[in-house]
Design a protein around this nucleic acid. Structure first.
Lengths: 312, 312
DNA sequence: CTGTTAGCGCATTCAG
DNA sequence: CTGAATGCGCTAACAG
């Protein structure tokens, strides 16, 4: 039944006939109980929110690597909730997932040490693991943000606002670092009054952008550090009819960014590459590779579509 | 450990201390092997494509019902591939999923009869099960499409094109039925030269729409029967600079439809309600409800945003 | 090449 | 109320 050698074709047929007749399905749980290594051929995928296009593209890429190997993927959304991260990793652990791909919501993954010791392969994506030695697959956040802000500088802007999501997550911090680096290189002092953080929803980002643009000395350009923030800013610009006068560059691409008017210039991440790489690394670890954990980096790409090329 | 009555607090503490000390995690697979009923506390979710916003919203809703019950969700994309549907249901079956929520890709689900007999709860979503008696949760496809086309008729259109995805899937057929019904009621003869099907990607839809609008006698309005088709048509209209002269109503909402210029009028489905209802029905079945299978219907809602209110 | 046996981790049943 | 014995479905190790 499991395609092992040394079985006569007669017996093989007899077995397969019985399988068909009885609608027999091997019980994977029972199998992994006895089998050496105890693999379950399932992996867990913990994402920020499956309904965010970044996450869903990533999920799709992971599935595309896993399914052909006969491995199933459990997926769940964390919603930036550290407690949910712990609960869900525990649930996966109880199901004996062979590996976990995690986009961390919490700031400390040391609680996973016991899982690692127990032999569960873990790969962190999007955000590096903290206080835990595992592989990570990350985007070039600093360099990408620098490139995005430089793009605005090259188009003549000197007063560029930074709008970001939760300030306590590493990606947001790194993108802010990239923003600072670009301004520094250009010899521009940072004005923290046009640095806005903790915009955790489209609506908050839109409101913050509207307030910002209504001030006496508004910025001539906005750098939005996350896709929902970018969309919120685009909404505010549309609402104030300033989409053709204030420049916008967003970090992370999103569907229809090219169809808006003007098209939204973005520093695109490559969620498909990230997901594929993370899954490949994970299966490599599950396969037994025990080299020291490494950090893999997937580059960003600036896509100019109009909004980022508006001059002040 | 499982919170059963009749255990002294002393022994309870001793057990919990040992659990903490040893990082013990109950093995759900082994548990379900012995436990009466053999539940695994996992359900499978088979979707068209997790990276489609309709599917990912649905997935999120199912997770939101499942996770609080301690049930995990396996998700996979079918890509309209009937063989993948069979392979994946088999994989779920091997993992002893308690239930399956399926958006069918194939036209005949009778192959699932043995699973139903074996006690697996099954709920079909988006498309009704065929040749299999199980619960279904569907959108009011016919009525929704009729409403969408009527909206165009009310705005003075007499020559309305129909652009749909795969003609062999029931939803596309039902939406076409709705289109026919609306034209019939208005006493308009159907012109099959402006009925285009099998537009299985955005790019195909865009090309078909561009060709259609370039003809000698183009339609004054387009009814697009699926979200990717709608986006493809919107791209074609933009490309031909006819987005303000040709009306467009799409079936199924999509993110940023309101931010396009003009906003895209849609017959919105409610994927969150569908997912929540499907999950609720599924858990009800898993819980033992054996009433005859029923078909549940979630209504659509027309959202006017501009593109559907353009007059010929 | 084929049939048999033991035990994976747990819940159930029964004896204390 | 607690401990010990049994078997769920499967694979690994072994005897034929």
């Amino acid at each position: 039944m499991n395609g092992e050698p040394g079985v006569s074709s007669t017996l093989g047929r007899r077995v397969r006939d019985a399988i068909d007749e009885l609608d027999f399905r091997p019980n994977i749980g029972a199998r992994s109980l006895r089998r050496a290594g105890g693999r379950t051929a399932t992996v867990g995928l913990l994402l920020e929110d499956v309904s965010n296009p970044f996450s869903s593209a990533l999920q799709r890429a992971v599935e595309d690597v896993a399914i052909p190997r006969g491995v199933m993927v459990f997926t769940a959304s964390l919603d930036e909730d550290p407690q949910r991260e712990r609960e869900l990793t525990r649930a996966f652990s109880a199901r004996r997932a062979d590996g976990l791909i995690i986009a961390p919501a919490s700031t400390d993954q040391s609680y996973l040490e016991s899982e690692v010791r127990a032999g569960t392969a873990i790969v962190c994506i999007d955000r590096a693991a903290r206080r835990l030695e595992v592989d990570s697959v990350l985007t070039t956040n600093v360099a990408g943000a620098t490139a995005g802000v430089q793009h605005l500088l090259e188009h003549g802007h000197r007063r560029i606002a930074f709008l970001g999501d939760r300030a306590d997550i590493t990606t947001a911090q790194q993108r802010y670092e990239g923003y600072l680096a670009a301004l520094n290189q250009a010899g521009i002092a940072v004005d923290t009054s046009i640095v806005l953080s903790d915009l955790t929803s489209q609506a908050l980002a839109q409101a913050a952008a509207a307030e910002l643009l209504g001030r006496a000395d508004p910025p001539t350009a906005v750098f939005a550090a996350q896709n929902l923030v970018t969309i919120g800013v685009a909404r505010a610009l549309r609402q104030l009819k300033q989409e053709r006068s204030v420049a916008l560059v967003g970090f992370d691409d999103f569907p229809l960014a090219d169809l808006l008017d003007p098209g939204v210039t973005v520093v695109a991440q490559d969620p498909i590459a990230i997901g594929r790489l993370a899954a490949t690394v994970l299966f490599d670890r599950i396969g037994g590779n025990d080299a020291p954990p490494a950090t893999h980096v997937v580059p960003t790409r600036l896509i100019a579509r109009g909004s980022g090329e508006i001059r002040p």
